[in-house]
């Protein structure tokens, strides 16, 4: 393997991203720290939270806001800025496709509900991924999956077959697309990515499977859903989850003892049993993923810090959305703090 190719496959070695990483390091320093998040959490209402936010990176956007209830416009504007930055700094086509495919699959989920289940021609818009919404819509209405990239085309083909047989349900649509999405992510990471990307996809699959596992234990869906819900490709085999579905909650921690998720499962399970709320578990899952990407802080080069920043910023926007929503509708502070994940 040539030195250049080896550097492409080793995390933090791709020097083409030297400028991007420098810029990301500067932007990372402007992310909200835990002290500011705590001040936002302690704010009496949304107006006060907005005043606290005005001293931060969001100051310019806050100044344009007439009312605190319009906080979503700040988050949307910041998200637009984030995606522009990503497109500007990302030098690899495969990586751009990989990241944008998340939006494609999310758009396909809604469009397949609209066009295939509801048979509605109603126009619909959302943030576009790698494929324009019109093209996705046409592929479904004209039954021409060939218009789409291969990975999307095969998933749409499955949906169209199910629809012809009259057995397409919204949940089945989501499960088919989720499987296709993770298969695509894993394939792309293995074909082009560094070991970081491969590990990242596998950890993400594990975390989604762990959350699905607890949701299944709690809500007991039908057998067909149980069969389709878990994703292959993670570090924990699907059979492990299926075998533990009926185990008592107190032994779950031990059953995951040999995995990296022991603490997460043990604490998440205990909180779920004690409160009946998934908030703590979701916080632990968020924290785990953010903790995983935090390792890119020591990478001198490579596309990994860019992806980590993208996730960290989205994570921050999610935290702000939760805080402002809670302050606007007066959700109990304890419930909010219980759910609030750690900062990047």
């Amino acid at each position: 393997m040539s030195r250049w190719l080896r550097s492409q496959r080793t995390p933090g070695q791709d020097t083409r991203y030297a400028f991007a990483v420098g810029r990301i390091r500067a932007l990372e320093a402007r992310l909200l720290d835990s002290a500011r998040i705590d001040r936002l959490l302690d704010a009496d209402d949304a107006e006060e939270a907005l005043r606290i936010l005005s001293d931060s990176e969001y100051g310019g956007l806050v100044a344009e806001l007439a009312q605190a209830t319009q906080f979503e416009s700040i988050l949307t504007a910041e998200e637009d800025r984030l995606w522009r930055l990503f497109n500007e700094l990302c030098l690899d086509g495969w990586l751009r496709d990989l990241i944008l495919s998340r939006l494609d699959y999310a758009n396909l989920k809604v469009l397949s509900r609209l066009r295939l289940i509801l048979k509605s021609e109603e126009p619909w818009s959302a943030r576009e991924g790698g494929v324009a919404i019109d093209v996705l819509s046409e592929a479904l209405t004209e039954r021409t999956p060939a218009l789409l990239p291969d990975h999307l085309a095969s998933a749409v083909g499955v949906l169209l077959d199910s629809e012809s047989e009259g057995r397409l349900s919204p949940r089945q649509t989501d499960l088919v697309l989720d499987h296709a999405y993770f298969a695509f992510l894993l394939q792309q990471a293995q074909d082009h990515g560094t070991t970081f990307f491969i590990q990242f996809v596998r950890v993400w699959i594990d975390l989604v499977n762990i959350e699905t596992f607890f949701r299944m234990r709690y809500f007991r869906p039908d057998l067909e859903t149980v069969r389709l819900a878990f994703h292959n490709g993670g570090t924990i085999p699907v059979s492990h989850f299926l075998a533990l579905l009926d185990e008592p909650p107190e032994v779950l921690g031990h059953r995951f003892y040999a995995t990296a998720y022991f603490s997460l499962v043990e604490h998440g399970s205990a909180a779920l049993e004690a409160t009946g709320s998934f908030s703590r578990l979701e916080k632990l899952l968020d924290d785990y993923l953010i903790d995983f990407v935090r390792r890119t802080k020591v990478y001198p080069f490579g596309s990994e810090p860019l992806i980590a920043y993208l996730l960290a910023k989205e994570h921050e926007l999610k935290m702000l959305r939760m805080i402002f929503m809670a302050k606007t509708v007066h959700i109990r502070e304890a419930a909010l703090k219980h759910r609030m994940p750690e900062v990047y």
Binding site: A106, K109, S169, P170, R171, T173, D174, L175, L177, D178, Y181, F182, V208, E211, T212, F214, R215, Y218, F219, P221, D222, A229, G276, S277, F278, S279, L281, E282, R339
Partner: peptide, 20 residues
Amino acid sequence: GTIHCYGYLGTSGELDASLL
């Protein structure tokens, strides 16, 4: 029927619990 009419990726257990 079931009130949970969606998949598991991109949604959350807390959403399931709130709908229930």
